[in-house]
Amino acid sequence: MSAPVAALLSVLAISLASLAGALTLSLGRARLERIIFLLVSFAVGAMMGGALLHLIPESYEALGGGPKTGLLVLAGVLAFFVLEKFLHWRHQHGAPEALAGATGHSHGHGHGHGLEAGAAPFALVNLVGTIAHNVIDGAIVAASYMVSIQTGIVTTIAVMLHEIPQEIGNFGVLVYGGYSPRRALFYNFVAGLGGLAGAGLVLVLGAGFEGLADYLLPITAGAFLYIAGSDLIPELNRRHSYPASKAVGQLLMMLLGIAVMALPLLIGGAGH
C-alpha cells in the first residue's frame, strides 16, 4: 500500500471517531438529559488537556521559544470571542434559551422555531474550532506517512487516542448547546471530515501546508481554552453546581478528560 493511500485511510478512520457520540444515543433522551453535564465536564477536561498538553507544547516545538506562540494563542482566544459575538448579534435568541432546552425540550421563547434555530452560538463556535483541529490532525498524520509507514501508524494511534474522548466531549457540547442528539452526531461527523481536507492539502502541497499548520496549532489551542473557560465552565457553575454530588461528578469528569488526553504522552514516554 502506498503512503498517500495509507495516510488517507488512517485519517478516514480517525474521522469516524467523531461517531463515538453514537454510544450515548442508546441511552435515551431522559437518561442523556441526566448525564449531559457530565459529558460537558468531560469536554472541558479534554479541551483544556488537549490545548495545554498537546497543541501549545507542539507549537513551541515547531515555532521555537519567544512570545510568538503565546501571541498566537491569544489571537485564537480573541478571534473566537469576536466570532461568538458576531453569532450572538446574528442570533438574537442567545445561549440561555438554548441551554434551557439543551436535550430536546422547547426553548420556551414562543417563536415556533425548530431546535437548531435556538441553538447556542457557542455550539457553532465549538464546531469551527473542532474543524480547525481536525484539519491539523489530518495534516500531521499525512506528514508522518511521508516520513515512513511505521511513523504514520504510530502517529495515527496517538491521534486516535486523544480524538475519541474529544469527540465524545464535542458531542456533549453540541447537545448541551441545543442541537438534537442525531443532528449533533451528524455535525460532529462533518467536522471530523476536516481531517481529510488537512491530509489532502499536505499530500498535494507537501511541506508548504505543514508550515501553515504550525501556526494553526496555537490558534486552535486558544479556541479550545476560550470555549472551555468562557462558555462551558461558567454554564456548569451556573446550572449544575448543586447538590455537592454534581460538583464532585463535574470534577471527576474533568480529571478523566485531562487524564485521557495525557495518555498518549504517557505511552509515548514509556516507548522511549
Rank of each mutant, 00 (worst) to 15 (best):
I233P: 01
H105P: 04
L185N: 09
L205M: 15
G64F: 15
L127D: 09
N237L: 15
M146C: 07
G200Y: 03
L201E: 08
I131Y: 03
V135G: 05
G101P: 02
G49N: 10
L256E: 04
F42D: 00
A244D: 08
L216I: 12
N170I: 14
G195M: 05
G21V: 15
R182M: 14
G192M: 14
L87Y: 03
L52S: 05
I164N: 04
G28Q: 07
I140N: 15
T156C: 12
A221Q: 14
G66A: 02
V248G: 00
F171L: 12
G108F: 03
W89R: 09
E235V: 09
E61D: 11
Y242T: 03
S230D: 02
V82S: 04
G21L: 12
G222P: 08
R182I: 10
L71F: 10
A244Y: 12
L32C: 02
G104D: 08
G257T: 00
L8E: 06
A142K: 00
E58R: 01
G108A: 01
F224C: 13
L25R: 13
P264M: 04
P243Y: 00
L232G: 05
S106T: 01
G206M: 06
L87P: 09
V11C: 11
F42Q: 00
R29K: 06
V11A: 06
P264T: 08
G104I: 07
L203C: 02
L256C: 02
V73C: 05
V77G: 02
L205R: 12
H133N: 12
H113N: 13
L55S: 02
L193G: 10
R238D: 02
L52G: 05
G64R: 13
L39E: 09
E235Y: 05
E58P: 13
V77R: 07
M1V: 02
V125K: 03
E84A: 05
G104K: 00
E210V: 10
Q250P: 00
E33S: 03
Q92M: 14
L185E: 10
G152Y: 11
S245W: 05
F42L: 15
I140L: 13
K246V: 06
V77S: 10
T69G: 14
S148N: 07
A184M: 06
G177S: 10
Y60R: 07
P165L: 13
A102H: 08
V128P: 08
H105R: 06
L185S: 02
Y179H: 12
A7T: 01
V248S: 02
T69L: 02
F80N: 10
I149P: 01
T130K: 09
Y226T: 11
P181G: 04
L19N: 12
A207D: 11
R29W: 07
A207N: 02
E235T: 02
Y179S: 13
G129V: 08
Y179C: 06
A102T: 01
L127F: 09
P218R: 06
F86Q: 11
V73M: 07
V135Q: 09
L236V: 08
V173F: 07
P121C: 15
H91F: 07
L216N: 08
N126G: 07
G229D: 06
L266V: 13
M254H: 14
T130C: 06
L23G: 05
N134T: 15
G49V: 03
A95R: 10
V125Q: 12
R90C: 05
H240D: 14
G249A: 08
P243K: 00
